[in-house]
Design a protein around this nucleic acid. Structure first.
Lengths: 178, 178
DNA sequence: TTTACTATAATTAGCTC
DNA sequence: GGAGCTAATTATAGTAA
């Protein structure tokens, strides 16, 4: 039989591509599970394909979020900062927040007419109005709108949590629900 | 030799755990590369470990961000919405933004004293002040602070982009840089 | 510590039903 | 389409240098 000797290239046949996908997906997730169990490390895998209605996520949505968060906070730092961040991530996060904090203060001082909330609202309006003008097939636009949607969601969530805190939270409660 | 028949459990010995990690990491990333090449799907893997100064990311930071974005926008939806999202993600994003938009409007109307920007700023202050009280070893707190740091970063980025748009952007430019 | 080796386990491509 | 098979290939645990 003309079997084996697989060349690493896109499988053109639809059904065999799907079959290969299903088999290898299982192997990939198993691999991820094993390296996590054996080595106790923080690992995550996401497989997003047209064959599954939802993305396959390992180890779990919660665990994946942790990994994503770590990724988000380290990917754009210079090498030296990355190392420092790894050694003491908490300190890094504090620095990052302080920096963002100062940026917000500066923006408020430099341009008191800018109301950030109003701007975000207007920004959303613009984004909606602009989409029909031909952005439907623009991947970068789609990606940024997704980011923005998530951003707004997260912002609202943090706002709700903050309101809870301000209305009656103690330090202990902040530590648990922040 | 008493070789093979590996039990799937945390490897206690430090050096052999690290060795196993290095070997299996290579295998995992290779696997990810192959399923992507063979099946043309969108997959991403992140391995974050104490052994590497930076997380190992496959296929790339950019590609990973795309996968993360997709994940973020689909993970918390009911099954029916997930399907709809897959079929027409753009429409979903618009709905999501509209909903967030309306929520912001409602909040502004219901409680005009609440200045979201001011609140975010205060929220950051609270977060900073609370950390020394014993939150250093609280994983949930760390996670949320990371999320918040990323959120603020993204918010500032979107603000900057928006300012560019408001200062001189046309519809075409919005479509490209939004 | 890293590299090389290799015996074995594990994966999987192509097949059949 | 899926389940199961088998052989070919690949990955890797443990050892040795």
């Amino acid at each position: 039989m003309t079997r084996w000797k697989v060349k690493l290239a896109f499988i053109i046949n639809n059904s065999s591509r799907k079959t290969t996908y299903k088999k290898r997906k299982r192997g990939l997730l198993k691999n991820a599970h094993e390296i996590f169990t054996l080595c106790g490390i923080n690992a995550g895998a996401i497989i997003y394909s047209p064959y599954d209605p939802t993305p396959a996520v390992w180890p779990s949505v919660e665990g994946m979020n942790q990994v994503i968060t770590t990724f988000r906070t380290t990917r754009n730092l210079p090498e030296i900062d990355r190392h420092n961040n790894m050694v003491n991530q908490q300190e890094f996060v504090q620095q990052r927040i302080t920096k963002a904090d100062q940026l917000l203060l500066k923006k408020k001082k430099d341009n008191s007419e800018v109301n950030l909330t109003e701007d975000m609202y207007r920004f959303l309006q613009i984004g909606q109005l602009t989409i029909p003008a031909g952005g439907h097939n623009n991947p970068a636009l789609t990606r940024d709108l997704n980011d923005l949607g998530y951003l707004v969601d997260q912002y609202i969530n943090s706002l709700n949590r903050m309101i809870q805190i301000l209305e009656g939270g103690s330090d202990v409660e902040i530590g648990e629900s922040l």
